[in-house]
Amino acid sequence: MAIDPTLRSATISVLVENEPGILARVVGLFSGRGYNIDSLTVAPVEDGRNRSRINIVTSGTDMIIQQIKAQLDRLVPVHRVSDLSMEGPHIAREMALIKVIGTGDKRVEALRLAEAFRARVVDATTESFIFEMTGATDKLDAFLDLMRPLGLAEVSRTGVAAIARGTRII
């Protein structure tokens, strides 16, 4: 069988036992085996069942992404692994806090674009704004590109949280 060399991006959600070291285990797996991490988020979910969800955006050939899934799945505290990008439509969102410093026309333009992108102003001084924006990664990227010439000073992004559309659950 031939190996398909095309690279693809994958959004993988992992349901894990919420125990010490679990994040190190997952991250260590990626660094130890040379897989990419483009984005990573983790937080407890499902109160009472002591579980966390880790969302990882990675990229590689299909063979590598299958391998990543299998490697994650054999970690002892891992309950479930799901490649959201392969298993039907899904929603992926991240949030960013974006600080733009500037005055005059640039400041006005930043605010106007923020409105167009539905970014919220969560802090303002006479020479700065902090915008809060939630959306798909490419939307955030597009907004940041626009802010760069307008005084983009600092960005804090959450990384991607993702979930399957419809009734399907991980």
């Binding site: 069988m1 031939a2 190996i3 063979m63 299958q66 391998q67 299998a70 490697q71 799945d73 054999r74």
Partner: peptide, 13 residues
């Protein structure tokens, strides 16, 4: 017995 051993180095049918 280990899924990750399969298709790691050599693709199999």
């Amino acid at each position: 017995i280990d899924r990750s051993s399969i298709n790691k180095n050599v693709p199999v049918e």
